[in-house]
Design a binder for these strands. Structure first.
Length: 375
DNA sequence: AACACGTGGTA
DNA sequence: TTACCAAGTGT
């Protein structure tokens, strides 16, 4: 044991001491939260949960995971489902390309692996939507392979244990962290160890207000010893936020409203939305709606009134969305699509059957609260 | 290497 | 309110 004692009564350990791994595993076994995907570690369930968890809070994922597993219990069900149905199950979770990848990967797993998710990290890594993190997560959690996972939590925990001063974005850092984690991992305990590191990162070694008092491995932590915990990890790049104003139309005709489907490939690909667009410099939201509907759909409209102003954020854009109730003026015009792939006139009550971006969904809820007043 | 890709919580 | 941040992947 490579322990050294400090001058005081506390034992101080070094991160090179591999007993840190055993300590983390024991802590996890006592403190882990009961989660639906921690019941059986079925490869399919691990794949779906890990994909949902990419850049997404665990508390948000749980209900989506339960609903998905009820509806789509295996790989074949995903391959046979329509993209529209998958998007509906995903609505609100964000990063919708994950769904498209899930479906593509399901097709490959059926065709090439007989419906069995591969256990080999290299084979997993080749599947769409599975990067370094998810490949390692499936290989270790579902198949017991001794490979370390390095997600945002593991990165933060490792940066603090090592008191890593270089920016974690550096290409060298990732390798170094994976090697450190691999050294700490007790042989045969990858499932518990990997989850221990991530669970510790989310519950104890948090980005803000880390609970070092409650940390099972603080005595191994170089940043704790140095008092630099709040300054780790060091990060460099930062994107500037951009303010955007958008105006959309809830276009009514014969008791229906007009919705259109976004093209594949870009932002919110395959989701439905209300027509509209960016409000240009020196233009009012009202003018923008009229212009956008003329440009996008080739129709002229009359504004009946404002429905709501919604503030939200999409990637690095801060958006103010103005929504107006409109009718075709003159009536009887037929919209022609420009950027959208598909469009539909639907009764407001049917809006729940389509996948919308979250700001549009909020607008729909407002619409439905007001329904009966002026539809 | 750096940026696109969603969303909602926190300070 | 603005700004940062969170269980990443693809290009």
């Amino acid at each position: 044991m490579a322990k050294t004692s400090s001058s005081g009564s506390n034992m101080r350990h070094d991160p090179e001491d591999e007993s840190i791994g055993t300590c983390l595993v024991e802590w996890f076994c006592r403190n882990q939260r009961p989660l639906p995907w921690r019941r059986h570690y079925d490869p399919y369930a691990v794949w779906i949960s890990e994909t949902m968890l990419q850049q997404t809070q665990m508390t948000k994922v749980v209900p989506y995971f339960e609903r998905w597993m009820d509806r789509l219990p295996n790989v074949r069900a995903v391959a046979e489902a329509s993209l529209d149905e998958l998007l509906q199950l995903w609505e609100g979770l964000g990063y919708y390309s994950r769904v498209r990848h899930l479906k593509k990967a399901a097709d490959i797993i059926l065709a090439r692996y007989g419906g069995q998710i591969p256990s080999d990290e290299k084979a997993l890594r080749r599947l769409p939507g599975i990067g370094d993190y998810t490949a390692a997560a499936i290989a270790s959690l579902a198949f017991g392979r001794d490979v370390p996972v390095l997600d945002g939590n593991a990165q933060r925990v490792t940066a603090r244990l090592l008191d890593w001063e270089k920016p974690v974005e550096d290409s060298h850092t990732k390798k170094a962290f994976q090697q450190a984690l691999r050294r700490w991992m007790p042989p045969g305990r990858a499932r518990e160890f990997n989850q221990a590191v991530m669970e510790l990162g989310s519950m104890v070694c948090a980005p803000r207000r880390p609970a070092c008092d409650a940390c099972p491995v603080f005595s191994w932590c170089r940043a704790y010893a140095a008092g630099t915990v709040p300054h780790r990890p060091v990060k460099t790049r930062r994107l500037a936020a951009e303010q955007v104003t958008v105006a959309v139309a809830v276009l009514h005709d014969n008791g229906n409203v007009f919705i259109q489907k976004r093209p594949p490939g870009g932002l919110m690909a395959g989701l439905w939305e209300f027509p509209g667009g960016k409000v240009e410099e020196g233009e009012s939201p009202e003018e923008a709606v009229k212009r956008e509907l003329c440009e996008e759909l080739g129709v002229t409209v009359k504004l009946l009134g404002k429905i709501a102003e919604i503030r939200h954020a999409v990637t690095r854009f801060r958006i103010r969305l103005h929504a107006f109730r409109c009718v075709l003026d003159p009536s009887g015009q037929i919209p022609t699509l420009r950027s959208a792939v598909e469009a539909l006139w639907v009764p407001p009550a049917f809006l729940d059957r389509f996948a919308f971006p979250s700001a549009n969904r909020r607008l729909i809820r407002i619409l439905q609260e007001h329904s009966g007043l002026d539809l």
